[in-house]
Design a protein around this nucleic acid. Structure first.
Length: 395
RNA sequence: GGGUCAGUGGCCGAGUGGUCAAUGGCAUCAGACUGUAAAUCUGACAGCAGUAGCUUACGGUGGUUCAAAUCCAUCCUGGCCCA
């Protein structure tokens, strides 16, 4: 992998660059659609290419459970298995250490999971995670980490960071001492943690840059903390990272978060929001979010966004999408996803273009003048997560 | 004509003397979702009042009782059985 920094914004910290991999180049800043289980839910590869997706995500934990590495190896890796010929980044399973908290045990050496599918017991270690990602054959491998929850007290954050650092060192050692299985090369990114504590974040940047990775991710943000904290830490961390490496803000975010992150120096982002929210009826455009379920769209024969040239907007009305959603017609979920993914990718593409044109500041202002930003209801977010987990803890 | 079972909020359906303005589900209305255990989750859902509360409600009417969706009488409507 090679990263070339092409242009830096004069006013804000935004930057445009290009990442080269054996599966092609990625023009940054870029939004990366999430395809956890070897599919970006509801979309075909053709849909993704039409949306100009340049790189997608897969997940170590999910793909390890199903279909399993034996099949993955037989398939010739994840690219061949799903027939996606552009770059893939795989998450290490570190996020599941956090999101499946009720089903796992951590010790310093490894974590023990119960499968959310059948309850069977599995162990993950840094070595195992990197080994799986070797078998998946992702272009970008993520180090194995622990994503801390919010809120998180200082002592736990410190303890967790120490463990994460050990895990990342072991990830790197294992990566350096193992080889790619397939003909293309792979690269390893480290993940900065430290919860909401600036000193821990600084410590993490120092530790990881000393180890030296090809790229640096910022993890443990967008887990329910107030936005102010998220933006502030993103900026602090980016300012300390080497300019010559790509920066990846994990799990972000809403359109406004993406723009704010780019403005602070982030190059890569991923989020389930455009795909999940599409399936739950929320659609994005340059004016903000709408809920296509709402009664007001029953009789609205305009497209979601008259200026959007995705397949959905070119062919279908809000009234039709509202009808499909109310009737639980699966085509509706796909049409919604096509639109949202198109919008998220257009968002980063336009941001990039403006950086190249030296008009990012105008782009930024223009975006916030037109976009109705959702209120930062982080307490609601935490409550919702709790509800969801309670609902599923018995299974 | 005789017998029998039933009639509950927009719909389906639980409840069979007080803890019932009435469990559930559906529909409806709204909100949330940030490295996907998510086509998921949450809230509202008789009316009025800022909680306390008040009014009208379990087919109709009348009654028993301190108290009735729940018991009794009668009428209406429907299902099934016998003529």
């Amino acid at each position: 992998m090679k990263f070339e920094l092409i242009k830096e914004s004069k006013t804000l910290s935004a930057r445009a660059g290009e990442i080269s991999t054996d599966h092609g180049t990625i023009q940054t800043p870029i939004f990366m659609p999430v395809g956890t289980k070897a599919t970006v839910k509801t979309l075909t590869n053709e849909d993704l290419e039409k949306a100009k997706a340049q790189i997608i995500l897969g997940n170590t934990y999910h793909l390890y459970l199903r279909p399993g590495m034996e099949i993955m190896e037989k398939a010739g890796g994840l690219h061949k298995f799903m027939n996606w010929n552009k770059p893939i980044l795989t998450d290490s399973g570190g996020y599941q250490v956090y999101s499946l908290a009720k089903l796992r045990k951590i010790d310093n050496n490894k974590i023990t999971f119960r499968s959310h599918i059948d309850g069977s017991l599995h162990e993950f270690s840094p070595e195992k995670s990197i080994g799986i990602q070797r078998t998946l054959g992702s272009d970008i491998i993520m180090a194995f980490d622990e994503c801390t929850p919010y809120p998180c007290d200082y002592s736990y954050a410190k303890e967790s960071l120490k463990r994460t650092h050990e895990w990342e060192k072991r990830s790197k050692d294992y990566f350096d001492n193992s080889k790619n299985i397939y003909s293309h090369s792979q690269t390893l990114f480290g993940i900065i943690q430290g919860s909401t504590f600036e000193d821990l974040r600084n410590e993490s940047v120092k530790y990881l840059t000393d180890l030296s990775f090809d790229g640096y991710a910022i993890g443990g943000l967008a887990v329910g903390e107030p936005k102010k904290i998220m933006y502030k830490l993103t900026k602090k961390v980016c300012d300390k990272l080497p300019k010559s490496s790509p920066r990846y803000l994990m799990g972000v975010g809403k359109p406004e978060d993406i723009i704010e992150s780019i403005a602070r120096g982030v190059d890569m982002m991923d989020c389930v929001l455009p795909t999940r929210n599409a399936r739950n009826g929320a659609l994005y455009s340059w004016t903000g979010k709408i809920n296509i379920k709402n009664a007001q769209y029953k009789n609205d024969f305009r497209p979601i966004d008259p200026n959007c040239d995705c397949y959905t907007c070119k062919n279908h009305s809000r009234a039709y999408l509202n009808h499909l959603f109310r009737n639980q017609e699966i085509t509706g979920l796909k049409l919604n996803t096509i639109h949202n993914i198109h919008f998220f990718l257009e968002l980063t593409a336009k941001a990039r273009q403006s950086i190249l044109n030296d008009t990012f500041f105008e782009f930024y202002n223009n975006f916030f003048n037109n976009y109705r930003v959702e209120k930062d209801n982080y307490l609601n977010n935490l409550k919702n997560k709790e509800n969801y987990k309670n609902k599923h803890k018995s299974n």
